[in-house]
Structures are given as structure tokens and as C-alpha cells.
Nucleic acid binder design. Structure first.
Lengths: 384, 384
DNA sequence: CATAATATATAGGAGCCTTGCGTAATTGGG
DNA sequence: CCCAATTACGCAAGGCTCCTATATATTATG
């Protein structure tokens, strides 16, 4: 029916065909195998999915044929007696997912299984991405490298999500970018799409992807409402509302940094004021601890940053705020004054956490985004 | 199966029962009748739902039995020849939906059909609602009145949504209220729930309900991302994100008014500064037009208000901002300076519209909320 | 009143799921 | 080495649902 690589979306179930039942059950079986890593026997699946054994067997025949499921060696006898059961697993490596982070620092690409487990990461050295052609080549190169590293070729890619330092529309068009203005006329997204036309190619703002990563694997796993604030080359924010990434009509949701009273421009200036050779956070934190009398510089910085965060919290009422980007290395030394400043403004106390995803946050978010797409189309899992 | 009044939610389709198909088809037929007001013949339904006539007939027998569908008189011969078909309609009046607006001004109740068409509106005179018992009685009275007006009794109520000037948690608990602090200990929601235990009773913040109304029937119909700002007794906001009401973890989403830089407190002071006997907007607008030199007072007010609106727009990137509450009567005279002030801050121009729902916005939002609940549970329509 | 047109009822054929029984494969003890 | 116990697998019967196709009922029109 829907074999690997062919991502069909079924909106409304067709009750006119009896085979719809078969399809429902097939998805149920596949979902179960997807959600539980282990090798399953038919009997296990049947009881878990509340189906009869013959039905599960039928579904497995189809799923094996389509390539979504693998039959593994019978388990080396668990408790003893009886004929050993055939075992089945979700074929999480028949295809790979890719997440790319393309920014002024270069390009990063993560390859992962269909479940989203990271297989490899490749980073290019710094290169000038202001030129569209350069950027395209950097993406192609980094993808080639990561694929060769995991021993796959381009046609094994099921879904690819690219994070860009720009405001990205739903269709992938770049609505606005301050970082690389020349991309807008070059139409990078279209070219990447054409280059990998056999795969599902998606584009998203880098901060939003990092947010998806924090929500999926990071400090905000399991929450339904969270805010992610990134401080690094820029200050940016992403938000999960009701379990889903908030994009807005242009894809510009979260741009509270443009609000003067949010004081993020000031915060960012302070953050970068210490020059480029020295990692700025060190200097900032040093000053913060050295100077014990008078207005602590770290405190002033936190105060500035807190304005925008408080605005986000008042608007969204999130469960958790995650602080990411280069600044995350400050850890508790930042979180404490920041929490205090935010709490002074908001109606409810908000838990603030530091990101632990590091440099790969955006590329990992690309993986999560790709995976969510696969889950929604193939497994019919509603992300929420 | 699921008869009127019994709102069963089916999460996962049970593929183990063949009768699941029957259920799917039954819902499809019911949805079709719900979405199209007219009286339908079996043949029409069959072609619309892509089902065979016998299947549709079977579904209709069940739906008639359960009370969701009515058989109407055969149409007085449309084009002429042939045996006239039996006609069926969605039974939109077997039960009623209620929406209640409970606030310092008193209580308002709207009764509506299951499709959400307004049947009657009843307003109590002013009464002191600071006492919990008084408030409860006001709700009960206004419901009794509206029901007698439409000739129904309490057991005809399928769903009831009450709007409160408070932050309401998902379970209906009042998390915070500045208007009527005494309600918190009284637990008004629980008492109302107990009083109407046979119906689905829900609670929501009044501004959020007004937002749902604007999104369903008002100035923002058809949008997937919108912001509603209400200026009246208080200044408050509600938001639709990705087609759904944003609530946040405590139900406090949209409370940007607490952000000092949003200057809503100042705006509100200016708005109310003209005393209570004269409707403030008149005075404000008069001053605005009279004084042609110097900083126009309306402009200053708009500037204040614009800060918070711009913050909301930057965070959410909405398609439309709707201005509601008493201030809506200012119309274009407010919209124009407000749009200018907001546009000076936001990244993208945002369309701003004035609400035309008037005083009943909150109660209508209660109807929309009740209707959405029925649509989700009975018709399995995903609001989005 | 006969005929055409349309709706409704009924029967046959095929698909899917469940239950239940017989067969296959493996382990452990005599 | 062989047999019993145990567990898995495969097949067939029964029941439900859907669809198509044909027969019957009902009404308007000439």
C-alpha cells in the first residue's frame, strides 16, 4: 500500500472500502513497533494492539513487503520451553533522516534513524555563505560527507530539514533575513528542493528548529508549552504552544527581539562587547564574580534579557523557559539572576533551564522536524 | 451507539471490530448533514460521502434512532417527475448550547442550536457578584430565563460554557482573579458543574471566549493566527495560534498587560479617566478631534495601547488583530493611529479590525466553545 | 389510465476480523 | 534416544460490513 519512501497522507478514512480496516490495523501494528524498540513476537503485538493473531500476521506480511518492518533472528530462548517465536522490529534504518544547520558559522549536518537516533554529525569549517551558490554547495557537501560516513547514498534520505538564519514561510520561501540578504533573490530553498527532489525537503528558521530539539530531546521534553531563548550570534526565540511549534502567518513568531522595550539589542551588545577572540561569556561571567560591589554586570545583562523573556512568558504562559546558544555555558550563574528578574514581572513563577544540546541543537531540531513529519504521514501520529 | 446527550470520545479506532466501519460511515453522514443545513435525500448523501445507498440508509436508521437526525416532509416536488425522496436533516434543536458571560456588569446568557445559531439572549441587570452565592444565583437565574424563552428545560442543555473575569485552569479552577477575589475560595466552577451535572460544563477566561467568538463568527473568521484585544473594564487579550485558542499552562496566556513596557495600564487609565457617567470613548474621541494642534490625546492613547499589541504581534505573528470591548465604537478613528503605531514596531504590517460582535461577544464565545466541544466529541471534527 | 422517472428494498458476492482447532517446532526429563 | 509439555503457526468456519445489481414501490405527466 504505502511503501517506504512513498509518504501518503490519509486525511479522511474511507469507510466505503472494507480494506480500510486492514489499513487501520496495519498502522496500529507499525506504531507499536515504532514506539517500542525491542523485537516483538506476533502474540505480543496482538495483545498490545488488541487484535487477533491472524490479523497481526496479515499486517506484518504487508509491512514486511513494504519494507517498514524487519524479521529478526528468533531470540536465543528466553525462559525455555516451546517453539521460539518469530521476532519483528521496526525497520528504523531502511532510510535516514537528515537535519542541516546552515548559518554564518558554516554548515552542520546530522544523520539519524527514522526514530531520530543520531548516527553521525559533520561540520564544515567556516566558509562564506553570503553567496547563494556557496551556501548550496556547502549544504550538498556536508550531506555527502555525512551520508558517506554512515554508508548510505542520497536515495536513502527520506526527509531532510534545513535550518536557516532567516524567517521562513510555510512553503520554504525566505520572508526576511538580516544575516544573508542575498539568499532572498537566489531562492536557496527551491534549489535544495530540486537537488533532493526524491526526498521530503523542508525549511525552517534555525531558532525554531533548536526549539523543536529542546522540546523533543532537550531540557523541555514532555512539556506542552515552552519557550526557547537563544543567545549567540543573534538573540532569538522559539515557542511550543499546545505541543506544536508556533510559526505565525509569515513564520515570524517569536521575534520579540524587535520590541525595543524587550532590551534584547542592549543585552546582545553587552554579550558581544568583549570582542571575538575571547569567548564573551567568560569575560562577562568573570566580571560578574569579580566585582562584588555595585551593579553586577551579569545582573545588568540578565535584567536586559529578562525583559523580553518576561514578555514571552506573559503572552504564552509556558511551563518552562530554556536558555540556549553560547550563553548556555554560563549555567546557573545566569539562570539565578535571570529567574529573579523574570519572576519580578510575570504573574506566575516560570521554571528556567539551561540547554544541554550544545552546538548541534539546530541540526538536531532538523532531525526532530523530519521525524515528526514521518510520524505524521507514515505512522499517523498527531504531534501534540 | 452514541446517542444524543452521551458524548463519547473515540481516540483510537478499534480495527478489531468490523462494526468500526459502520461507525466511521455514520459519522461521515452526520458530519455531512451538520455541515449543510438543507434537507438531504439519501442519494445526495451517498454521493457526497462516497458511500453506497444501502450503507447510508443503514447509518440513517441508527442516527434517527439516536436522535441526531430528523426525517422531514418530502420536498414539495422540485423539478417534477418521479417518486419524491425522503429528506433528512441534522437535528440541530434536539438539544441546546448555552454560553454565559459572568462579570462585574452582571450575567449574560445566550442559547443556541447545536450548530451555534443564536436562539435567544438574556441579560440580568447589574448585581453584586463579589459574593459567590450571588454569582451562582445570577447564573442559575439567567439560564432559567433564557431556557424558558426558548421553551426548553435544563435537561435539554448539551453543553454550557461560562466566561469568567479570571484566569481559569484547564479543569475549571480559578487560578487568579483580580476582579472577584472571593470566588477563589467559594469554588464557583465546581458548584455550577454540580448544578448542571447532566450537561458538559466548561469554564474559560472571558477575554479568551471573546477571542473564540471573533475567530468563529467575528472579524477574524477563517484565520489561523489572530489576536484579540479587549479594552473595557480591563484591558485583556486572547489569541488563536494555529487555529486553536492558546491557553498556556495556567490558562494565563495573553496577559501581556502585566508587562510594564506594554503601557496598557497607562492606556486603561487614559481610557477611563473621563468618569463613569459619560461613556469614556466619546470624551476621548471628542478630545481627539477637537484638539487639532499638539499631541492628539487619542493618538497618545493609541500609542500606549500599541506597545502591548506590537509585543503580541512580534511574539505571535498573527494574520489579524481584532480590537474589541467598549472601545470598538471608536472604529476607524482608533484603528488608523493604532495601526500606524503598531506598524512602526512590528516586522510585518498587521491588519487591524474592529469587533462587530458587541456586548454579547463573551457569551457568544461560550456558544462557540460549547459547539467546538460538541463538534470534537460527537462529529469528530478536529478544530484547526 | 398507462408510462416514465425516481426512490426504496432485497439478494448475491467479496473482504475482513474473530474464534477455535489441528499442526509444527523446540525444550527438558526419563 | 524418545516422549511429554509448551509455545507458536496456519487454516477454516462464522459473522459482520461493504458494494453492485436487480426487483419493487411510489409519484408525476401525457
Amino acid at each position: 500500500m504505502a511503501s517506504v519512501g512513498d509518504t501518503r497522507v490519509v486525511q479522511t478514512l474511507d469507510g466505503s472500502e472494507v480494506s480500510t480496516l486492514r489499513w487501520i490495523n496495519e498502522r496500529a501494528v507499525l506504531r507499536h513497533l515504532y514506539e517500542d524498540d525491542r523485537a516483538h513476537s506476533v502474540a505480543e503485538i496482538a495483545s498490545a494492539c488488541a487484535l487477533s493473531r491472524p490479523t497481526v500476521e496479515g499486517a506484518l506480511v504487508q509491512l514486511l513487503q513494504d519494507g517498514w518492518v524487519l524479521e529478526t533472528a528468533p531470540q536465543a530462548s528466553g525462559k525455555g520451553a516451546g517453539r521460539p517465536a518469530k521476532r519483528y522490529t521496526f525497520a528504523d534504518t531502511v532510510k535516514v533522516l537528515l537535519g542541516v544547520d546552515l548559518g554564518p558559522h558554516g554548515a552542520t549536518c546530522v544523520a539519524a534513524t527514522l526514530r531520530g537516533e543520531r548516527l553521525a554529525t559533520v561540520r564544515t569549517g567556516e566558509c562564506d555563505l553570503s553567496d547563494g551558490m556557496e551556501a548550496l554547495n556547502a549544504v550538498v557537501r556536508v550531506i555527502q560527507q555525512v551520508l558517506s560516513e554512515v554508508g548510505r547514498n542520497e536515495h536513502d534520505v527520506l526527509a531532510l530539514t534545513v535550518g536557516l538564519p532567516a524567517i521562513v514561510e510555510v512553503d520554504g520561501r525566505i520572508a526576511l533575513t538580516v544575516v544573508v540578504p542575498r539568499w532572498q533573490s537566489f531562492d536557496l530553498p527551491r534549489r535544495i528542493k530540486e537537488r533532493y527532489s526524491y526526498a521530503q525537503v523542508m525549511f525552517e528558521n534555525d531558532a525554531k528548529l533548536a526549539t523543536v530539539a529542546e522540546h523533543t530531546w532537550g531540557a523541555a521534553t514532555g512539556t506542552r508549552n515552552m519557550v526557547n531563548v537563544l543567545v549567540g550570534h543573534r538573540v532569538a526565540a522559539g515557542m511550543i504552544v499546545d505541543g506544536r511549534l508556533a510559526r505565525g502567518i509569515h513564520g515570524a513568531a517569536g521575534e520579540i527581539g524587535a520590541f525595543p522595550a524587550a532590551r534584547w539589542a542592549s543585552a546582545h551588545r553587552r554579550w558581544r562587547s568583549t570582542g571575538t577572540s575571547t569567548p564573551p561569556h567568560e569575560t562577562l561571567s568573570d566580571r560578574g564574580t569579580e566585582d562584588k560591589s555595585g551593579p553586577n554586570e551579569l545582573q545588568v545583562f540578565a535584567d536586559d534579557l529578562a525583559q523580553g523573556i518576561a514578555a514571552l512568558c506573559l503572552v504564552l504562559d509556558p511551563e518552562v523557559v530554556v536558555i540556549g546558544g553560547g550563553i548556555a555555558q554560563l549555567g546557573d550563574r545566569l539562570i539565578r539572576p535571570l529567574s529573579d528578574s523574570v519572576a519580578a514581572i510575570t504573574l506566575f513563577p516560570v521554571e528556567m533551564r539551561v540547554s544541554d544540546l550544545g552546538q548541534s541543537a539546530v541540526a538536531l531540531g532538523g532531525i526532530a522536524h523530519s521525524r515528526n513529519h514521518v510520524a505524521a504521514t507514515v505512522l499517523e501520529i498527531d504531534q501534540r
